[in-house]
Design a protein around this nucleic acid. Structure first.
Length: 325
DNA sequence: AAAGATCCCAACCGCACGATT
DNA sequence: TAATCGTGCGGTTGGGATCTT
């Protein structure tokens, strides 16, 4: 446990008396033990008093935070599961940065952990694309790209092209951590897509993104933020060719964008056919010509890893991302 | 192998708000 | 009614771990 091996303590910014009295910085194993034993005997609450009586030279706030975020027995450690990630994305689209409220729907996960996840994984992607993480465009990308991918992962498909379909209700009807989405309202999916679908025109996509990101008043997203897309709808997204998908959303350009991205990455996996050198990418996205090269990435062989599951794996533009400067 | 860059997350901070004195 | 206390929340930071060059 990293935090317990660290012995350095930051200096307080308070008075000299405070310096002598209060410890800050990483908790030691001894402090953890004191806190756990005290709470086991006397319970939580009255944190300032608790800190004194337990013999901890910590503020009540610090004790409370340590207990809630780390020591409490039901705190879950480790990577967030795809189900949890999906739930976070969905709930954040509804409630915004209401971390504690979101955390209430993820048993064992703390608001701090969810907040960290959002900042380190989700906002990072928004920064890479020079899109406001709270913009309609980015919300749409999350709903129409990442969430279907998470559903794909949840469905347990080993091959990237395997889809979660309406014919696979065993997957779709399962509530995620007690979160039961509404039933789908989509029409039956069309026949499978032909593999000779026209190559993706990335310049059109980027153009759509630019326009959509400029439209911040509710019409930009293919899925209304007011009425969130349910799990089945998201999964069925993948069943629709672009032409069909156009009819679903309120903004056909944007829906084409997200559909095309998802379609190309998850069905075709033939990024070799995209001539990146000729692409015209709006400057707003800040993707340099160099960064657009796919040389480092091997899209044709790309697969989702089984052990690791993070946003980078879900991100269709990951090989287009420039390094942050 | 080493240095620098980046990632990640535990912990801190300030503020708000309700309860209590 | 005002002051104080306890708690909770969201934003930010520090620094070890990991990755890249």
């Amino acid at each position: 446990m990293r935090v317990n091996t660290m012995s350095s303590l930051k200096k307080t910014t308070g008075s000299k008396e405070d310096d002598a009295e209060l410890r800050r910085g990483p908790w030691t194993l001894e402090e953890d033990t004191l806190l756990v034993h005290y709470i086991a005997r006397h319970g939580e609450g009255r944190w300032n008093l608790l800190a004194k009586r337990a013999g901890l030279r910590r503020t009540g706030k610090s004790c409370r935070l340590r207990w809630l975020n780390y020591l409490k027995p039901d705190v879950k450690r480790g990577n967030l599961t795809p189900q949890e990630q999906l739930l976070i994305l969905d709930l954040h689209s509804k409630w915004g940065n209401r971390w504690s409220k979101i955390a209430q729907h993820l048993p064992g996960r703390t608001d701090n952990e969810i907040k960290n996840y959002w900042r380190t994984r989700v906002q990072k992607q928004a920064r890479h694309l020079r899109i406001d993480a709270n913009s309609t465009a980015f919300q749409g990308i999350i709903r129409c790209l990442w969430m279907p991918r998470l559903l794909q992962k949840i469905g347990g498909s080993s091959a990237p092209s395997a889809m979660i379909t309406a014919q696979n209700p065993a997957v779709l009807s399962q509530p995620i951590l007690g979160y039961a989405p509404p039933l789908p309202t989509f029409p039956p999916p069309p026949p499978p897509l032909p593999q000779q679908e026209a190559p993706l025109d990335m310049s059109v996509i980027m153009h759509c993104m630019e326009q959509t990101s400029d439209s911040e008043h509710g019409t930009g997203s293919c899925i209304s933020s007011a009425e969130s897309m349910n799990v089945s709808q998201m999964s069925q997204l993948s069943e629709y060719p672009t032409s069909t998908f156009q009819t679903i959303g309120s903004n056909s350009d944007y829906c084409n964008l997200v559909k095309d991205c998802y379609y190309v990455d998850s069905v075709c996996y033939d990024m070799e056919s995209i001539n990146l050198a000729t692409m015209s990418v709006p400057g707003e996205l800040g993707i340099s010509a160099v960064d657009r090269h796919m040389g480092d990435g091997d899209w044709s062989g790309y697969e989702f890893g089984d052990n690791e599951w993070n946003m980078d794996e879900l991100w269709p533009f990951r090989n287009l991302q420039g390094k942050e400067t």
